[in-house]
Design a protein around this nucleic acid. Structure first.
Lengths: 137, 137
DNA sequence: TTTTAAATGCAACGAGGTTGCAAATATAAC
DNA sequence: GTTATATTTGCAACCTCGTTGCATTTAAAA
């Protein structure tokens, strides 16, 4: 049984072609993907509605997580262990790729008196290794 | 001369009612505001297009900055000193208010070999002081 | 194989945001 | 204060993202 299929079963979600395709694709990919990238890479095509509903379901089950770079720039990635309360992502300004960083790299943010944190999101913008190397050579 | 007017002049932007209104409102407000809040609180009403263009211009000049909570939840706030390379914001899950935190409170994020950071955005979700106190009483 | 709750596709819709263009306006020059 | 000019505004039209209701299809349990 495929890993994607197994993940869906563990979360008590019905296995459907669309869900399985999305999860499989994300498992293969190191980088976070946009809806368009996912659509283009899937063998079968699905209705937009189905995509949105699938993303929503998968996110609510904690299988994937959503990274909002800007209002119109959303990415999705598999939610690996340790991403529960803090997510850090690296966004490359040159190639636009988004990579998940370990939550271990996040230091707690100092808050004013009376404030209580439940979750912290960090987005670091910059130049990724690949793009740095291409400039050098 | 109003502070807003002065700020526009310093950035070599034409003073217009819409721009001046937006900047004035933001100077008065501790919290980041949504487009709707800004629209509702301004004396005169402006076309949506004008709003969007004003936000864009003000942001490009570094007068205000945009905080994207979610695809459909965008806020704007005055860009005060020290917010150039790192922004931290607190989002209250209860009252939805967004408060700018000093960038001093951000610790540099540890990056993998070869990655270079230029800017860091942090959003801390939780409960603000006001909402914490209301629960107690 | 049958049953049934859940997922899909479709059409229609609403919100956020952009573009082109003519009319209005802020500022600088007179 | 007038005039000239570049910028900004408002409008209409448009695009993308994302949602909702409903009839049809499908996964999976019996």
């Amino acid at each position: 049984m495929s890993e994607a299929r197994e993940i869906l079963r563990q979360h008590m979600l019905k296995r459907t072609n669309c869900r399985e395709g999305i999860v499989s694709l994300m498992l293969e990919n190191e980088h976070a993907l946009s809806e368009h990238e996912i659509r283009d890479r899937l063998a079968s095509s699905y209705d937009r509605t189905t995509f949105y509903r699938s993303f929503k379901t998968l996110e609510e089950s904690g299988i994937i997580h959503k990274i909002v770079l800007d209002s119109q720039k959303v990415r999705y990635a598999i939610a690996r262990r340790g991403y529960i309360n803090s997510h850090a992502h690296f966004h490359c300004n040159s190639c636009s790729s988004v990579r998940c960083l370990g939550s271990a790299s996040i230091q707690p943010v100092e808050l004013p008196e009376g404030y209580r944190a439940s979750e912290t999101e960090v987005i670091v913008h910059g130049i990724c290794r690949n793009c740095n190397e291409n400039v050098k050579s």
